[in-house]
Amino acid sequence: MSDHLHEPELALHVEDLTVSYHGKPVLWDIDFDIPPGVMAAIVGPNGAGKSTLIKSVLGLIPPIAGHVTLFGRPYRAQRRRVGYVPQRSSVDWDFPTTALDVVTMGLYGRLGWLRWPGRKERRSAMEALEMVGMQDFAGRQISQLSGGQQQRVFLARALVQNADIYFLDEPMAGVDATTERAIVNILRRLRDEGKTVIVVHHDLQTVRTYFDWLLILNVRVVAQGSVESTYTADNLRSAYGGQIALLDSEAFISRAGSEGRESGHDEAVDTGADRADAAGADVRERTS
């Protein structure tokens, strides 16, 4: 089954996947597909299995049942085409290493055994740092970076992998507004280059501005498809259940809320203001 291509026209194809965490299944018999060239969000309430799903796709948690293919082949055969950004909190940032060094780690898989990264690797890592606007921090010890800067370094490490499909686990959690916008811009650029970007996302308010594909998850796949067709009150209600009261006020009506959040950060004032406005207008247009 691994030899011939299985659903090669899909960037990610997940079939009948059941994954357990500490012996207890958290995802039951999941089927979903993500076409290439989209920017997809995976949303769902806490404990819905979003991170578990990504980890299982990347072979970090073996599934109980089902299978996954990327561009028609299992992950093991496609490792080089995949970029991965784990949750920022998953590592010890006091580790003695520099930003440039962390980015270079993205090339370790390609380097293979016994070879040390050289000038060429450092140059690609530097280019990736430039892409996320962190070139001035290349030699900085990672513990001296802010949360948002650390997240950008992690993103640069995935960029240097030069992949066709990117998985990001909560990249926007706990970062400032500037970083969030910078990350989204980079991800959009990747998408425009024809790459597939899959993001575990926690903020329902921004789903429609940032993404064009959506997977709503809660133990099962509640809904999947383009954002326009999937981001509906019904779907969200059936995924979030009791928390829907909060949703109604925040995700559907709040324009003021998101605006207030944007201007709360003083760094946001310089470049992003007009874009934020445009995004806000976008929200209003679609909601009305």
Partner: peptide, 22 residues
């Protein structure tokens, strides 16, 4: 010396190392 970069990555970020196939 031979496994330097592997050891380094495993100490810093074992999840990422596994995703790379180490």
């Amino acid at each position: 010396a031979l496994l330097w970069k592997e050891f380094k990555l495993v100490c810093f970020d074992p999840g990422f190392a596994r995703a790379l196939g180490m």
